[in-house]
């Protein structure tokens, strides 16, 4: 795609990958959560470089704004002592192997997909995006929101088990 600024893309991609590596390697769980936040913000930047303005803002609001705060909340509320936030580095080889297999699998599957031709005319504004979401793609959209709602209710039920809801 000719319109993607290569410098911005490389910088953001490096930030996202570097942040992901740091999330895994840092010994402090609270620092890991903040590195995760950095990854999520860099990903929003990548969407913006790809002209997906709406997705970038939603990524910023939902993942960087809400999900990482919840991650931090869980970490800070479950730590009994502050010193517990620093752990010895635990390199789990089975997990590393599984991640590697998954990465190879994703690379293999996506390699087979055709690269979409760049269509400049098809860069939708938000109104067109919303229109498409609620007409052509309304069924997948509603299924996804149904699943999220079920997960939400399930989580509340689980957390409040034994008590009146």
């Amino acid at each position: 795609m000719p319109d993607v600024n290569p410098v911005a893309f490389v910088v953001l991609a490096a930030l996202a990958l570097g942040g992901a590596v740091m999330t895994v390697l840092t010994r402090n769980v609270v620092h890991a959560a903040f590195w995760l936040l950095e990854v999520l913000v860099a990903t929003a930047g990548l969407y913006l470089v790809l002209s997906a303005e709406f997705i970038a803002l939603v990524q910023l609001m939902v993942y960087a704004g809400a999900v990482s705060v919840l991650v931090l909340f869980v970490i800070m509320l479950t730590l009994r002592r502050r010193e517990d936030s620093v752990r010895t580095r635990d390199l789990s080889w089975p997990v590393a192997a599984m991640s590697a297999v998954l990465a190879v699998a994703i690379a293999y599957v996506t390699r087979a997909l055709p690269v979409p031709a760049p269509e400049r005319a098809a860069q939708p504004d938000v109104a067109a995006f919303g229109h498409a979401l609620f007409t052509r793609w309304v069924l997948p959209f509603e299924i996804a929101s149904g699943i999220l709602l079920v997960a939400l209710v399930g989580a509340v039920w689980w957390a409040g088990r034994g008590e009146e809801l």
């Binding site: 803002l57 939603v58 910023l60 609001m61 800070m76």
Partner: peptide, 20 residues
């Protein structure tokens, strides 16, 4: 074009700094 959403999206980052 998405000014309103943009304001809320960037302001959503403030609580992270406060927690930090």
């Amino acid at each position: 074009d998405t000014g309103l959403l943009y304001v809320f999206a960037v302001l959503a980052l403030v609580p992270m700094g406060v927690m930090m």
